[in-house]
Design a protein around this nucleic acid. Structure first.
Lengths: 340, 340
DNA sequence: CAATCTTGCTTCATCGATTGAGCAACGGTG
DNA sequence: CACCGTTGCTCAATCGATGAAGCAAGATTG
């Protein structure tokens, strides 16, 4: 018979009838504990064969309703438009599957309302753990998780009510700033302060990176110009706007720059190309994030790669153990050994 | 405090008891059809308030078990490591949510076994539609979808058993090849054939792009060297290997290249940088895919952007209508007007 | 040969939300 | 006052899978 339309779903009752047995035997066979339930091998094989013939797939909704654990782990992520978050999601899925967990992921477009909405939806699906990645208000998410009986974790940006796994932003920014200052010195002959571009002044990561940025300048005895800290937001257009505004008030911009993410870097490079401000004397950039094409094509760009593998190891350590031993885990980012 | 343990989940029975009413009234109020069920506004408000106080979240497993439609749409995608798939996933989520559907996405790492496994898992979760993006064997996925009562669609790579939405690879490749040939001519003074790098000879998209590549050469009266069609796979290392092998047998490589994806481009650029083959005379590249940093930094690289928005419009047109009017939809890719 | 154990199943209650059917109370009508 | 319609709820069956409890038949023991 030719089935154009999808057929009706097969249930264990259908299989039971076909096999001349009970639904409970079918269930026991198909979820693997038929030995414990003392089903004969003969019947088990018969049921398995019929299930395959019928293309049977268990109804997880029914199954999960009955079981006590859902084995579903959720993750919310701001965007899929850069390698950092892409890599986080990919690694999360792989590590979840290794453990027999079912990962569900959703992106929230950096919209705080959508974050909460997405969290609520995931809770409806009975996630056991919800990982908030780069969330604007992780504590509110933790609140609703606790109320709904789920565990929560923060990744990339910390919160105060759930364990947080983040990059070591201070140390990373300090090292990156030092390297960029040196790269810049090698290029222009003298040591001079950098421009800081991107990120939100209100978020923990940006604050820590600014602190590392300042410290690196201190280390080398250079003073930072307060007007040169442009925490204008992450979007490329924000960086373009901030650079243009600064160029409008100051004659020349610093040659060296610390850029807070690849997203902001996109804007920075767009502006550099469009404004012709740096024509002939390309800026020396350090970027707190990694992208393969920038690494290959960007001649004067030093990048730090956040240790996604290490961070997710920590996440799953907590999930595996069922609890965290520390409220904040800072994972050092990775520098390529080669410089500039 | 970090170590709070999640509370027990609240059910409509708990709420009913708190409100001094029945579970069925609670259900009616919370899923919005309390007017139809003639619940008084007074009771509706009371129930709503209590539900909010308790942080109640409906149990989707139970809800979906009872309803006939799940409103879940699934998508499988090979990787999250490039802008094309990232953009597909992001757009898919947005468009699904606009329609009140719940999107679930999983990546299959280009592993055919994992594709099937992921499809089966999604079917267990009662997806109504399953979109196979860039799948190696989309027809097998369609088979198991039909057996499980779900609809299926193919995106990016076509299949023969379900409607397919793909880029117009032939026309796109033809145009891109022509542009690259011209860019190359402008650079080196004479018209000469390009090298084709990346993709699998067995997949539809690569075959069509090779056809467009050949046609563009024909159009300009140039003959293609068969040894210069390197359909070596998508992974960067494959491109590196293929270029090295070719460079080992031939003295000089063509100056112009057609690269089949940003993934392959990564390998191509790695080899170019490492081998020093093109030092001083950078290759002129056309890439069938788009990346913002390549667009900004790659001076001699022309890119085509696949029309993700248009493709997903087509996908959701089919989902909205419940059926497709055509088995294959080819969406023209987008060229930036500016050349070179 | 009765008593007990083992094997191989079946029966039935359950998870939480949904919804058709039904029922009590009240107001309006003739 | 009998009858009917409306309002505002409750009852109970149901979705599909699960697993504790139970039961019948055969095997083993004393």
């Amino acid at each position: 018979m030719i089935q154009q339309k999808p057929t009706k779903k097969t249930t264990i009752y259908d299989l039971a009838e076909l096999a001349g047995t009970s639904a409970s035997a079918v269930s026991a066979v198909l979820n693997g504990n038929w030995k414990k339930r003392r089903i004969s091998i003969k019947l088990a094989e018969k049921i398995t064969r019929i299930a395959e013939e019928q293309g049977y797939a268990v109804n997880m909704q029914a199954s999960l309703l009955r079981r006590e654990k859902s084995k579903i782990v959720g993750m919310i992520v701001p965007k899929y438009d850069n390698r950092y978050f892409g890599s986080i999601v990919e690694t999360f899925e792989i590590m979840a599957r290794e453990r027999g967990l079912f990962p569900i992921i959703t992106c929230t477009l950096r919209d705080p309302e959508l974050e909460l909405e997405a969290a609520r939806t995931m809770l409806s699906y009975q996630v056991e753990w919800l990982i908030s990645t780069g969330a604007t208000d992780p504590d509110r998410i933790t609140d609703i998780c606790l109320a709904a009986g789920a565990h929560s974790l923060n990744l990339d940006l910390p919160g105060s009510k759930a364990p947080s796994i983040i990059s070591d932003n201070f140390a990373g920014a300090r090292e990156l700033t030092q390297r960029t200052l040196r790269n810049c010195q090698r290029e222009i002959g003298s040591l001079s302060p950098l421009l800081f571009v991107g990120g939100r002044a209100s978020d923990h990561n940006t604050a820590e990176r600014v602190r590392g940025f300042r410290r690196a300048h201190e280390d080398l005895g250079i003073s930072v110009d307060e007007n040169h800290i442009l925490t204008c937001g992450y979007a490329p257009e924000k960086a373009v706007g901030a650079l243009q505004a600064l160029a409008d008030t100051e004659h020349t911009l610093p040659r060296g720059m610390f850029v807070n993410s690849t997203i902001s870097l996109e804007g920075v490079m767009r502006w550099i190309k469009a404004s012709h401000h740096f024509d002939g004397k390309p800026p020396i950039i350090g970027c707190f994030d990694w992208d393969p094409f920038v690494a290959l094509l960007g001649d004067n760009i030093e990048m730090v790669r956040q240790d996604v593998g290490g961070m997710l190891q920590s996440v799953f350590k907590i999930i595996d153990d069922g609890h965290a031993t520390s409220p904040l885990i800072e994972v050092p980012p990775i520098f390529d050994t080669k410089i500039g």
